[in-house]
């Protein structure tokens, strides 16, 4: 465990908690893409099936359980509890266009052709693009609440910090995983535009409104 990995994990955890807190506190999930949240719940479920096969550490297992539980709690809040506030008219990104290519790619490019390894690979590919429905929703409405932009910033930073973690692991442990690295780069690049807006607007105390 290095500092990049730890801050990456904490940033990821923070993102998930910010989202839950925002929905709970405002009693509303407006501005949040339920479709992205479906994809994230799929990602965690597919990836963390290894909870049943590999025990790594208490930290590892606890974090995985929190991620899965939080993902389903978020879905519950969006689709059941605060259903009336869900922005379904703007949340129209077709997720099958992400799910199908990721599934196909995972079947072709994986480390090992076993159910668990293919699902693990699928989750890595899917995670890299899972934010697209959310970014699409923000671009469609042209704005995001400040708390939603904090959520997106924490979530985007997490994979960027993982990239630093992989550079560190390559140099100091001789370890690298090309599938995760390439997907991680794609994932981080997708946030770049948002990072720019976040730094130039939100940090200066302005709302995140997209340039017309």
């Amino acid at each position: 465990m290095n500092i990049f990995r730890l801050t990456g994990d904490l940033s990821h955890l923070l993102a998930i908690l910010i989202l839950l807190w925002k929905i709970w506190k405002t009693r509303s999930c407006s501005g949040i893409s339920g479709r992205s949240q479906i994809l994230f719940a799929t990602v965690y479920t597919a990836r963390y099936l290894d909870l049943f096969t590999n025990f790594v550490s208490v930290y590892n297992s606890v974090m995985k359980i929190i991620f899965i539980a939080a993902a389903f709690a978020t879905l519950y809040l969006i689709y059941v509890k605060f259903k009336a506030t869900y922005d379904r008219n703007h949340d129209t990104f077709r997720i099958e266009f992400l799910l199908a290519p990721c599934a196909l790619l995972a079947l072709i490019l994986n480390h090992e052709f076993t159910i668990l390894e293919v699902l693990w690979t699928f989750s890595i590919y899917l995670e890299s693009v899972a934010i697209l429905p959310q970014l699409f929703l923000v671009s469609k409405t042209g704005e995001a609440e400040t708390i939603t932009s904090h959520y997106l910033f924490a979530l985007g930073s997490y994979r960027a910090l993982y990239l630093l973690n992989w550079i560190y692991r390559y140099y100091f442990e001789g370890f690298f995983d090309l599938i995760a690295i390439v997907a991680g780069i794609v994932q981080t690049v997708l946030y770049c535009d948002f990072f720019y807006l976040y730094i130039t607007r939100v940090i200066k105390g302005r709302a995140l409104k997209l340039p017309a």
Binding site: R5, H12, K64, F67, E112, F175
Partner: peptide, 10 residues
């Protein structure tokens, strides 16, 4: 091994 190192990450 390599597989364990991968599954160690979140």
């Amino acid at each position: 091994d390599e597989k364990e190192m991968r599954h160690d990450e979140l």
